[in-house]
Design a protein around this nucleic acid. Sequence first.
DNA 1: AAGTGCACTGGGCGATCGTCCAATTATTAG
DNA 2: CTAATAATTGGACGATCGCCCAGTGCACTT
Lengths: 192, 192
Amino acid sequence: MTTERSRQVRERLLGAAAELIGERGWSAVSTRVLAERAGVGPGLVHYHYPSLNALLNEAALGVLAEVADQTAVHLRGTAPQEGLDLALGALDAYPGDDPTSALFIEAYLAAGRDEELRRGITDVLERFRAALADWLRAGGVPDPEATARVLASAVDGIMLHRALDPDLTAGAVAPVLRRILQPVPVATEGER
Amino acid sequence: MTTERSRQVRERLLGAAAELIGERGWSAVSTRVLAERAGVGPGLVHYHYPSLNALLNEAALGVLAEVADQTAVHLRGTAPQEGLDLALGALDAYPGDDPTSALFIEAYLAAGRDEELRRGITDVLERFRAALADWLRAGGVPDPEATARVLASAVDGIMLHRALDPDLTAGAVAPVLRRILQPVPVATEGER
DNA sequence: AAGTGCACTGGGCGATCGTCCAATTATTAG
DNA sequence: CTAATAATTGGACGATCGCCCAGTGCACTT
């Protein structure tokens, strides 16, 4: 039987893994530093998980799913422009060189080399894109499906670049990204 | 003295490094597999380069600079819409799960953990963003500086997502991304 | 108190890591 | 052709890797 204490240990291991993936990079996380960060013996990793990689997969997927679902919930019910500002503001909490931002990118890369992780991330991403498309559709944004894809990619791209370009703040990005949410050439009456 | 033959060997080492970074990930490239891929003895790596990481830095930076400069040249003189289609078409040559795409992302991540690499990539990126901004300005796109930043980020983000979303083709992305290049509906661009 | 079983420790296993270096080969200078 | 220098090899070094496992501690039942 699995006790409450062991559940807490697994949680600490997952938390330590999420930190270390971002700090050191996916393939540079070792069982020993992971165990040390979690405050347990080195052998515990392979007691609770079949392999180190399985632990890393679960840790990364957990963080991704949590951030994605939480973002989708926060967006629900807001107008496109308002929601965009809100999402970008939340993005400002991740400076780009923090462990969480790096974890996202590391997970995407690792997914290209691990079939199981790829499936998991694809599921999370598909759900997030669907929620994003619904939100865009409700806001009257044209071509919501394709727009959702591009928007999700662009936000991750900004997260990726932000570590190398401190000027890439939400304030600088928002006015440009806003154009994506507006209908094409035909001049309608201005909002704002 | 450095002979022609040794120059070719260094080139083969750099080429092998660029491949392996994309295939295995930055921190999973070892001196021995690198030397084997380049067809030389394992000791040659540290004969030509002070460390393995120095070789990886130079290899990644070389590819990045080449792609960036080449893209900037191709864009020069084209109209915004036309150039965007051209750039996205060229992007289709990288399916997302190919070594070159992954190399880009790996290099960005590694830059967060290596000060020297960070400086090198920042230079390349700054040059590319400046060229992109000039091109946008010539095309009459509003706020060319910020637009260039967002566009560069978005393209990298699409490259990142493409490995996980085969539907993210140039054809699906272009119509959405095109909106970025268009002025906002209401002519007067007020500032706050 | 003895028994049972999960949680956990710490060290051992062979493999591989980055780096270094003596020895060997290829190239060039005199 | 010989001497000198550059280029290259393959193996050694200690450290670290993922994984495994015999042994210990602890909570709970009987």
